[in-house]
Design a protein around this nucleic acid. Structure first.
Length: 471
RNA sequence: GCGGCCAUGGUGUAACGGUUAACACAGGAGAUUGUGGCUCUCCUGAUCCGGGUUCAAUUCCCGGUGGUCGCCCCA
């Protein structure tokens, strides 16, 4: 079992195996079968999907660069303490979904369930207060949550995130929303922006007292889940799906009424800025977020229309977290950010039939016959690479027929054919795959000839592109 | 974490409890020497795992695992 590499056990007759705990049993089952399987909730992102992933990543990067966000890469493993303190002990994410374990040096560590806490930690740890404020950062990478998997929900999920630290201006919130909206627009996805404000911890507390008092009157009407929420996380009552609760919410106190003047002003200005750039939004007074550190503006992007009816429809979520850095021991620092779920966004793209190729589609195929031709081929590939012309081949296939089949399947325009004879003559054959016409040319000129042929065909479309004035 | 549905080659499907588990696609080899698209031939390849019922289990039952949907929660 090559995948099971335990430290060598002392050579002793294994004491007859007692009934093992289920963990071990499971292991031996799997290994006796000989094929290790994917862990539940984890998946491979196969080549077929890479096009969409690249599109999402490239689009995010382009927006990040356009708005001068600096890239930051953060570790996947952090002290578990970081998340306990930031996300909140009582949240599900921390309470039951975190991959926590003790590392070999006996520290409690956790696979990160999200990255904002790490960004805040890095901001403090590297003295980013000393940089020009605000500090604008973006990241991309895997997060881990031990939740029950279903469509659009995985135990390893990937997020792209944007964070602005060291600024409390409303314009920052608005700009972040604008950027997220633009990412989806560029991707061709129609999303709805939902927005709310949950104010400062103080006014939220006052509101919560009121909300709890209100719902206590109707306690008997509440479902078990909602009774639990009332007790543990009353804010969650706001996005309950229970019809009874939804009914009761109509008369319930509204958080916006409980915001203090400053919070109200902040929020109003965010909305004004959004109006300014004509970003439509939906005020959703029931929108709350699951992480404790949020303050003031919170927002979420859901697929518009019917698509939005599905579960796991939120593609992106974010908000302001003015208290987080102080909470983690830094100076009081206002901050705001969002995270976009790559899996869910990729799924939305797939549903719309958007599936770009993962690598540039080659227009040229190289077919070879014999070892001499293979050797020339090695050099030829380098020449094409330098000329930025992607080229395909079917290494390992010998018969020309088989190679042409592959070329045909790939849909290339031109195939280069190089056999013994051509190698000796210093020539190479160019076959036009559509017409079947072939010509034999000087092998030294092959790159420039191909370059010209490709331009003739594709140069018609893009305007303002003059293929002639090249060299 | 709770509940519903589901599980057959790489993919999509088939198989009254009873021969050698079928078909399509994909993949591989070939149809006279170094030429693709159409066609034809052949080949590779599967009952998720573990128990139970039965003379006999892909089929029925239980458990596990995994997927999916809803809840919880969230991206």
């Amino acid at each position: 079992m090559p995948f099971k590499r335990n430290t060598p056990k002392p050579l002793q007759a294994p004491v007859k195996k007692p009934e093992t705990e289920d963990g071990d049993e499971e292991d031996s089952k799997k290994s006796s079968k000989g094929t290790p399987e994917l862990l539940r909730g984890f998946r491979d992102i196969l080549p077929e999907e890479q096009g969409r992933w690249n599109l999402i990543r490239d689009t995010s990067r382009a927006l990040a660069e356009a708005y001068s966000f600096d890239r930051i890469d953060l570790p996947i493993l952090e002290r578990s303490d970081l998340f306990l303190r930031s996300i909140g002990k009582a949240t599900d994410i921390v309470e039951k979904e975190m991959y926590v374990f003790t590392d070999p040096s006996n520290r409690s560590v956790a696979l990160r369930p999200e990255a904002t806490a790490s960004v805040a930690r890095a901001y403090i740890e590297h003295g980013m207060v000393e940089r020009t404020q605000p500090v604008k950062l973006w990241y991309e990478g895997p997060m881990f949550r031990h939740d029950r998997p279903q469509a659009g929900r995985y135990r390893q999920l990937h997020q792209v995130g944007f964070e602005v630290l060291g600024g409390n201006e409303s314009i920052i919130d608005a700009q972040l929303i604008l950027i997220a909206k633009k990412i989806f627009e560029e991707l061709g996805l129609n999303v709805e922006v939902q927005i709310n404000s949950i104010g400062t911890p103080d006014c939220r507390q006052a509101y919560l007292t009121e909300l709890v008092a209100y719902f206590r009157q109707f306690r008997s009407k509440l479902s078990e889940d909602d009774k639990r929420r009332l007790q543990k996380n009353p804010l969650r009552l706001l996005d309950s799906k229970e019809p009874e609760t939804i009914e009761l919410l109509k008369e319930a106190p509204q958080i916006l009424d409980w915001l203090d003047e400053k919070s109200k002003e902040h929020f109003m200005k965010v909305l004004e800025f959004l109006d300014e750039v004509e970003i439509p939004y939906v005020l959703n007074s029931h929108l709350v977020r699951g992480l404790d550190y949020y303050t003031h503006t919170v927002f979420e992007f859901v697929l518009a229309g019917d698509e939005g009816e599905k579960a796991q429809n939120a593609l992106c979520g974010g908000g302001r977290y003015d208290g987080l850095i102080e909470l983690l021991g830094g100076r009081p620092t206002a901050a705001c950010g969002f995270a976009l779920g790559i899996e869910r966004t990729a799924r939305a793209l797939a549903d719309k039939g958007i599936n770009p190729p993962s690598i540039p589609v080659p227009n040229v195929f190289f077919a070879q016959l014999g070892d001499a031709a293979r050797r020339v081929g090695l050099r030829l590939f380098e020449e094409f690479r330098k000329a930025h012309i992607p080229i395909a081949e079917a290494a390992g296939k010998n018969a020309l027929k088989g190679q042409l089949e592959v070329a045909n399947k790939l849909g290339v325009q031109l195939t280069l054919i190089l056999g013994q004879k051509e190698v000796l003559d210093g020539t190479i054959i160019i076959r036009d795959m559509e017409s079947g016409a072939q010509e034999t040319i000087d092998a030294k000129k092959v790159v420039s000839v191909i370059e010209r042929k490709l331009q003739k065909d594709s140069g018609v479309k893009p305007e303002g592109f003059s293929p002639v004035s090249e060299s």
